[in-house]
Design a protein around this nucleic acid. Structure first.
Ligand SMILES: [Mn+2]
Ligand SMILES: [Mn+2]
Ligand SMILES: [Mn+2]
Ligand SMILES: [Mn+2]
Lengths: 219, 219
DNA sequence: AATTATTTTTAGACAAATCTAAATAAATTA
DNA sequence: TAATTTATTTAGATTTGTCTAAAAATAATT
């Protein structure tokens, strides 16, 4: 089961997109891979023939058992290399992604396992994301309550503390959703409100109640 | 000037084949790259258009100035990764070539320079071959074929003539490696074999074929 | 329910890198 | 020199991964 670089990039993208919600749509994939929907359809057929995913035309797609196994190994390589770049080569945590995007496709089993040993079997990559082990197992994601984050930290929303319509209304109004990236600017002692800066947007203020309802991971 | 993996492999192969002198032939290249002469001709035209080499139909090929520069950077990456694999990941020197063959194509400038620093700017790879520096310069050592050394001379192995698993297996069996010191004892005219004495070890006999695959420097 | 808009798939084309088979040039031998 | 062998190039196909434009299916509106 040898995969090309393109196939691996598709598998990994599907893996990440299907994490939260059900089937992954063609358009979602096209956007995520910076390609066109027609190209995605072609590749989905090819990966289906390789039994890496379950695909029904117009119904979107999910990884098969084998596909998920492959995805976990790609993610493992990606995150191990990110750890290496930051921990050994003194890269900044914000400069490693593109390089790891290439290194992840060097798939020598021996290389990956020896690298893992050399690094001391790290459990998290520089962004706080868990690194799957040889068997594809990873520890639950490192998630923090936004209220506990220190100013200057860049975070990404990964879940909310309730599903209440009131909370979701407020989040929509403030343009905050799952995977929104934000920089924590300042915390005010008076009312425990938090000033944040959403990526490509303005500074806004978040109440104590709202901050307590948001769970984030380090980016 | 962004090169594909295939283009880089061609450039590197031409670089190594033209070392001796003279133009590199289409057939030589096809053999070296395990491809067909027709494919080589196609690629030579393409690389000529990119001004990486000077090619006249039927006359063979040489790298241009720019081509040589590119080649030296590919060789630099290859050898730095080989050093990394042996020195940091505990690979055997006979297991690194294939992996380095892939890693050499990850061409982030920043990655290569930081890796070089991390490794302590090594001057030689695990096979005794010199590693070009950032500017493409590499130390020149006066290197002789063991078959040409006169009896009574003390030498040190500094590189091997091929990376084949068969050669490396034989060397391991005879306990010969890079930087092994040996005294040349006697040369036999009958089969051109050579008797040597490895430092702190016994006298052993080396076949003509093996002697021709070993490069040494005077100690 | 009918119309409109969106999403997805199909059809056809293209560039990269390879191959086989045939044609041509160069080198060798007679 | 002429014939033969070897090396190289051309011609035409194939695979992979991509694209645009058009058709078909699904979803959203009126
Ligand atoms: Mn990638
Ligand atoms: Mn990461
Ligand atoms: Mn290579
Ligand atoms: Mn080497």
């Amino acid at each position: 089961m040898n995969l090309t670089v393109a196939e691996e990039n598709y598998i990994k993208a599907i893996f990440h997109l299907q994490q939260a919600e059900g089937n992954v749509s063609t358009n979602q994939l096209a956007a995520s891979l910076h390609t066109k929907p027609a190209s995605v359809t072609d590749m989905l057929k090819k990966l289906t023939n390789k039994n890496l995913l379950n695909y029904k035309p117009y119904q979107g797609v999910r990884l098969s058992k084998e596909g998920k196994k492959q995805a976990l190994m790609i993610v493992r390589r990606h995150r191990l290399w990110e750890f290496f770049l930051v921990d050994k080569l003194q890269f900044g945590w914000d400069e490693v992604h593109e390089v790891a995007e290439e290194l992840e496709h060097v798939s020598s089993k021996k290389l990956v396992e020896k690298l893992d040993s050399f690094l001391g079997h790290p459990k998290f990559d520089p962004h706080g994301d868990p690194i799957p082990d040889v068997h594809g197992n990873m520890v639950a994601i490192r998630q923090f309550n936004l209220i506990d984050i220190q100013p200057g930290t860049l975070v990404e929303v990964c879940s909310v503390g309730s599903q209440s319509a009131e909370l979701l209304e407020l989040l929509r109004h403030k343009n905050i959703g799952i995977s929104t990236e934000m920089l924590i600017m300042k915390k005010f002692d008076f009312d425990h409100s938090v000033e944040i800066k959403i990526k490509n947007s303005q500074h806004i203020n978040i109440s104590q109640q709202l901050a307590q309802a948001l769970f984030v991971k380090l980016v």
